[in-house]
């Protein structure tokens, strides 16, 4: 693998590894997404499904079908 890195360096690939800023953004993004997904899943799995069946009811909206 070091050979690959050396080849890339020669080719101008600048394989410098993760910088501090890169690490912070990567870790921040992962934590944000993981946090949001975990929060949602915990709430979803913890919620009881609504036992009532479906019912139809009028909505208080103006459909603009009358002038």
């Amino acid at each position: 693998m070091n050979h690959v890195v050396a080849v890339l360096a020669q080719a101008g690939g600048e394989p410098g590894g993760l910088t501090v800023a890169g690490t912070v953004i990567m870790a921040g993004s992962i934590l944000m997404v993981l946090g949001l997904a975990s929060f949602c899943m915990v709430r979803i799995l913890g919620e009881k499904d609504q036992p009532e069946g479906h019912h139809h009811s009028p909505l208080d909206i103006d459909r603009r079908d009358t002038e």
């Binding site: 690959v4 394989p15 410098g16 590894g17 993760l18 910088t19 800023a21 890169g22 690490t23 990567m26």
Partner: peptide, 12 residues
């Protein structure tokens, strides 16, 4: 050396 690839993707 995966940090090399991660750097390419994530370094801002």
């Amino acid at each position: 050396d995966i940090t090399v690839g991660l750097g390419f993707m994530w370094n801002p």
